[in-house]
Simulated scan of single mutants.
Amino acid sequence: MRLVALNKQRAVEEAQSNVRWLRPEYQAPEETAPTQTEMGSEATVSDTPATEKSKAAWPKDLASQVTQLRDMLAASPNSAESLAAQFKRKPVKGVNEVLSALAALGQAQQEGEQWRLVR
């Protein structure tokens, strides 16, 4: 159960562009922010606002898009614009399509500008 909770926590962190690389030189050579200290310790991305270079790419497949947005909404309600801002090139159209699909399935609900996950 602790492993499942940790996985959910990491998914939320990754959706917010906070990635903990185990081997940053291999896993993310283009990233400059992560640093690794001693062997066996985890590296984290700094808590500074995400820049275009450190933002995650919008997933190409629908399943990954749905998973990403559900994890982000599980962390806290967000507007479609703020969700799209977490990704490179701000895919507002794609985010709105996935949010509409989640709403049609009864998994997300819009209240004003904010979207939230229905539990």
Score class of each variant (00 low, 15 high):
Thr44His: 08
Pro59Cys: 00
Ala103Trp: 10
Ala74Tyr: 01
Val92Gly: 01
Lys88Asn: 00
Ala63Trp: 03
Glu81Arg: 15
Gln109Glu: 15
Leu105Cys: 06
Pro29Cys: 12
Gly106Asn: 11
Glu97Met: 13
Leu105Phe: 03
Ser41Pro: 05
Ala63Asn: 09
Ala108Asn: 13
Lys55Tyr: 02
Gln109Lys: 14
Leu73Thr: 06
Pro49Cys: 09
Asn78Leu: 11
Thr35Trp: 02
Ser41Tyr: 12
Thr51Met: 07
Pro77Thr: 06
Pro77Asn: 00
Gln86Lys: 13
Ala101Ser: 03
Leu102Ala: 04
Leu69Ala: 07
Asp71Met: 15
Leu105His: 08
Glu81Trp: 10
Lys88Trp: 01
Lys90Asp: 10
Thr67Gly: 02
Gln36Leu: 14
Ala84Val: 09
Ser54His: 01
Val95Ala: 04
Glu31Met: 09
Arg89Met: 01
Ala56Lys: 12
Ala33Val: 03
Trp58Asn: 10
Leu99Tyr: 04
Leu73Arg: 03
Leu83Pro: 07
Glu31His: 05
Met39Thr: 14
Glu31Leu: 01
Arg89Val: 02
Lys90Tyr: 07
Pro77Gln: 01
Lys88Leu: 00
Gly94Asp: 03
Asn78Ala: 07
Pro59Ser: 09
Gly40Ala: 15
Thr48Ala: 11
Ala74Arg: 12
Ala74Asn: 08
Ala103Ser: 14
Pro29Tyr: 01
Ser64Glu: 14
Ala80His: 02
Ala75Gln: 12
Thr37Ala: 15
Ala108Ser: 10
Thr35Cys: 12
Val66Thr: 09
Ala104Gly: 09
Leu105Ile: 02
Thr44Ser: 15
Gln109Tyr: 12
Leu105Val: 02
Val66Asp: 01
Thr67Phe: 13
Ala33Cys: 14
Leu99Arg: 13
Ser46Thr: 13
Lys90Thr: 04
Ser54Gly: 00
Lys53Thr: 04
Thr44Asn: 11
Asp47Met: 08
Ser76Cys: 07
